[in-house]
Structures are given as structure tokens and as C-alpha cells.
């Protein structure tokens, strides 16, 4: 083991972690919003809309993410009307192409989680909301979505970790996040094990932080539940 090389590559790899976290955070925010819409569409009564949502989930879960990234970054650029449209401002940037691909991908997985969460909201709670005279939007905003999110939180934590790992694919379209930098250092120094150890440790640290964060959130959201069962 060349420890000096490991020590020297640490700051460079850490600087890539900034990009990794950015990609993941933006993709998660966009993807979660999309997931709620898709989950509601999937549960809705209109067969056309729920069929479209089902197809979306089927396609994005059934194909490799790398293919989705290439399709968005290289595939769409083929069309003149895409290059002339306003979307081109965003799609021509590898940064945004990667975020869009990651967001569309996580939306499909999260929509399935959300669907389970929404169907798992106790019927009595929805009826109570109706009895209070809440409108549809208030019902979703105050009762259904928060309860559903609390239920899917542990599974969503896994999805966040999968996204941290998935962001490494952004290196295939020239983005220099942790994996991209690691590959460059390995190709230059021919020390795969050393660089892998440092880059891998950074990923494990990020994922550990995610795990702790999600556990904290779970504790906070389940506080009411604990108090309720203690009072009983």
C-alpha cells in the first residue's frame, strides 16, 4: 500500500464529493416531487392516466440507469428540434442531463414506495379529515401525504443510498465527481487498490451520514406515535 498516494489523493477526491452531494440532492428534490405526482396518477381512477404512470415506472425500473443517462445526454441531442428548443439550454449541460436522468430514475422507484405509503394510510384518518370538512388538497397536504411519507421513510433512506451510488454514473458523461476523479487518478498512477480504498471510504462515510440523518428523521416523525402509545 502506498500511503503517501492515499493521503495525497484524499483532498482531490473530497473535492469531488461536493459534486456528488449536489447531484444527489438536486435529483432527490426534483425526483420526489415527480414521484408524488406519479404515485397519485397511478392511484387515480382515470385508466389512461394510471396506465401512463404504470408504463413510466415499468420503463424506468426495467432499464439500466446508464442507458437512461446516455439516452438523455447523447440520444436527445440528435434531434434538431431539441437543439433549437428552450430545453437545449439545460440538456446540453452534462451536469443537468445527469440530474434529470437521476431524478427521472429515482422518481419511478419512489413513486412505487409512495403508492404503497398512500394506500397504507388508515381509512379512519381520511374519514376524520372529511368529517372535519377538509377539501381534497388540504386532506392530501395535511393528512395523507405526511402519514404516507412517515411510513415510507425507512425504505426511502435506502433509495437515498442507492442514489448516492448511482450518481457515480455521471462520470461516464464527463462529470468529475468522486468516481470520475478516482478513475483519472487510477489511470495515471496505476494504484487501483489505494485510490479505491480512499474513494470507497468517502462513499461509505456519505452513506453512513445518510443513515444517521434518516434515523433522526424517523425518531422525530414517530414522536407523536410514541407519545400516543405511552398514554394508552
Amino acid at each position: 500500500m502506498k500511503f503517501t498516494l492515499m493521503w495525497e489523493s484524499l483532498p482531490t477526491l473530497l473535492s469531488g464529493a461536493v459534486l456528488t452531494v449536489q447531484l444527489v440532492a438536486l435529483a432527490l428534490v426534483i425526483g420526489f416531487g415527480l414521484a408524488v405526482v406519479i404515485a397519485l396518477a397511478r392511484l387515480g381512477s382515470n385508466p389512461l392516466i394510471s396506465g401512463a404512470a404504470r408504463f413510466y415506472i415499468f420503463v424506468f425500473r426495467g432499464t439500466p440507469l446508464l442507458l437512461q443517462i446516455f439516452l438523455i445526454y447523447y440520444g436527445l441531442a440528435q434531434f434538431e428540434w431539441v437543439r433549437e428548443s428552450i430545453f437545449w439550454l439545460v440538456l446540453k449541460e452534462a451536469y443537468w442531463a445527469a440530474i434529470i436522468a437521476l431524478a427521472l430514475n429515482t422518481a419511478a422507484y419512489t413513486a412505487e414506495l409512495m403508492r404503497g405509503g398512500i394506500s397504507g394510510v388508515p381509512k379512519g384518518q381520511v374519514e376524520a379529515a372529511l368529517a372535519c370538512g377538509m377539501g381534497r388538497i388540504t386532506r392530501y397536504r395535511r393528512i395523507i401525504l405526511p402519514t404516507a411519507f412517515r411510513q415510507i421513510l425507512p425504505a426511502y433512506g435506502n433509495e437515498i443510498i442507492l442514489m448516492v451510488k448511482a450518481s457515480s454514473l455521471a462520470s461516464t458523461i464527463t462529470l468529475m465527481e468522486i468516481t470520475g476523479i478516482a478513475e483519472r487518478i487510477i489511470a495515471r498512477t496505476f494504484s487501483p487498490l489505494e485510490v479505491f480504498a480512499v474513494a470507497g471510504a468517502i462513499y461509505l462515510a456519505i452513506n453512513f451520514a445518510v443513515t444517521l440523518g434518516v434515523e433522526g428523521l424517523e425518531r422525530r416523525y414517530n414522536k407523536g406515535l410514541r407519545l400516543a402509545s405511552a398514554a394508552r
Binding site: 443510498i161 451510488k165 457515480s168 487510477i186 496505476f190 487498490l193 470507497g200
Partner: peptide, 22 residues
């Protein structure tokens, strides 16, 4: 299991690709 499930697949493949010869 911690390492192979917590580290990106692509990074693992790079390790094997560049490290296989050595």
C-alpha cells in the same frame, strides 16, 4: 456486505478492471 453494498458498482468495476492484471 457493507463494502459491496455501500460503494458504487462502477467504482468496484474500475477496481477490478485496473487491478485485475496486478
Amino acid at each position: 456486505t457493507t463494502i459491496f453494498r455501500g460503494i458504487p458498482e462502477l467504482l468496484i468495476i474500475y477496481l477490478f478492471f485496473f487491478g485485475s492484471s496486478g
